[in-house]
């Protein structure tokens, strides 16, 4: 089994749709899902790298595990439910703290899921085609969380991480609205995240001192710096 080169973690409250998003992306479908127990991960080959995507459990019971899952993460996808304001609030109150163990340069992405449920959806959303008629049966609800709220949260996170807004990726690139049900923006989300992660990993690899001899690799180690025993 190959060690993944980088980790992407999905965080967010129970039932916001983390598992559904991941399954939509990996299996191209929207199956019924049960609340995640503990966590699960999926290995994704992406441009010569192997990324692991961790689906965490949002239930309070498993909250303590989050910090370990986030350890060494290259990106954290903070997920909320656009029809539940509380789910956004929780991201800040409960989940942000868990990301302290992530990489220093960890990316933060904020995702509002279930846009198909809101009143805005349906118009001009071609992704809804081909879905079961059940979607229509769902009563539409007003969107409780606006994109601006997510953007505001993103900026708050930057402050929390003590990052300058100018140095971090712009909020409009880091806030998504998705629907695991229709597939709206799901590929876009994951692939955008992967594409941002790849250069970080490559840079890291280039920087980190070569500790082991890689018999399978054919590149000679980067200019071994002569160093005293440390």
């Amino acid at each position: 089994m190959r060690r993944p080169d980088a980790k992407v973690v999905l965080l967010g409250g129970a039932s916001v749709g983390k598992t559904s998003l991941l399954r939509r992306y990996t299996e191209r479908r929207f199956p019924d899902s049960v609340s995640t127990v503990g966590g699960a991960f999926y290995l994704k080959p992406w441009r010569a790298l192997h990324l692991s995507i961790w689906d965490t459990a949002g239930r309070e019971q498993f909250h303590g595990l989050g910090s370990m899952y986030c350890r060494g993460a290259a990106a954290v996808i903070l997920t909320y439910d656009v029809t539940h304001l509380q789910s956004l609030v929780e991201l800040e109150d409960r989940f942000l703290g868990l990301t302290d163990s992530a990489n220093k340069d960890c990316l933060f992405v904020i995702v509002g899921n279930k846009v198909d449920l809101t009143e805005e959806a349906g118009e001009g959303d071609a992704h809804g085609l081909g879905q079961a008629g059940g979607a229509r049966a769902c009563p539409r609800v007003p969107k409780q969380v606006l994109r601006e709220d997510a953007v505001a949260l993103y900026k708050k996170i930057l402050r929390y991480k003590m990052l300058d807004e100018k140095d971090a990726p712009a909020a409009e690139h880091m806030c998504f609205e998705t629907s695991a049900k229709t597939g709206h923006n799901v590929d876009l989300l994951f692939e955008a995240v992967f594409d941002m992660v790849v250069p970080m990993v490559l840079q890291q690899k280039a920087e980190e001192p070569v500790e082991t001899v890689d018999l399978t690799g054919h590149k000679p180690p980067k200019q071994a710096r002569p160093r005293c025993c440390s």
Partner: peptide, 22 residues
């Protein structure tokens, strides 16, 4: 042994490389 009857895996680096068993 983790919460909720989970069997959690952890490496010496403090990360999980396998999903937990239930």
């Amino acid at each position: 042994a983790g919460p909720g009857g989970l069997g959690m895996f952890a490496t010496v680096a403090g990360i999980s490389q396998r999903a937990p068993v239930h």
